[in-house]
């Protein structure tokens, strides 16, 4: 295969799987900014290793493997920050996270539906927290509630969304 053709294939694959990579990295790191950085790092590393890219083989396992290394590197570099997972857990959970990340498009489609079912207040909370990236403390101040109540509310919303998404996915299967 022509060199340019291989590169095009690579780019197409990489772009196509950005959301899955993000889903994978975010699930292990639990922080949007950090996850975005690590995905970008992963992209770079994959690019540098384009010689190992085999167009006839599945792209994702290779990309996930690189992403896992990058996540582990991130944990090493940020030892002092209290990240939720440690290296051991990342290794243990990696397979399952990969499987879930592979479904992220379906999850998002389901989520979009489920978000519409939220009450206006809850949607507002999700909007503030995730779309505008407000801190829980800022939200609490803005809506004149305690930090604790916002945390609980967000937790409930996530649970509600998770349930709804799972039901929808199950229904589709």
């Amino acid at each position: 295969m022509e060199q340019t053709e291989i590169k095009e294939q690579f780019v197409r694959q990489l772009t196509q799987h950005q959301n899955r990579l993000y889903g994978y990295v975010y699930s292990l790191l639990g922080d949007h900014g950090r996850a975005a950085d690590v995905v970008q790092e992963t992209n770079l590393v994959l690019w540098r290793k384009i010689d190992e890219f085999q167009p006839d083989k599945p792209f994702l396992p290779w990309a996930f493997a690189i992403a896992r290394f990058q996540v582990l590197a991130c944990l090493r570099d940020h030892k002092r920050d209290r990240l939720l997972l440690d290296a051991e857990l990342v290794e243990v959970m990696s397979d399952e996270v990969e499987r879930k990340a592979d479904q992220i498009d379906a999850i998002r489609a389901a989520l979009r539906h489920c978000l519409q079912l939220l009450s206006a207040n809850n949607r507002e909370l999700v909007d503030r927290r995730y779309d505008r990236g407000m801190s829980v403390a800022d939200i609490a101040e803005a809506v004149d509630r305690t930090i604790g109540s916002i945390k609980v509310a967000l937790l409930r919303i996530r649970r509600q969304l998770a349930e709804c998404v799972q039901q929808r996915l199950a229904a589709e299967e």
Binding site: Y26, S27, H32, A35, E96, L111, V126, Y130, G133, L161
Partner: peptide, 21 residues
């Protein structure tokens, strides 16, 4: 673990949607 992964993936999806903003 399974529950945790599910929840995290939902959060990731919310982030992706939110970023759509």
């Amino acid at each position: 673990r399974s529950h945790f992964v599910n929840m995290q993936m939902i959060s990731a999806a919310i982030q992706l949607e939110g970023d759509a903003g």
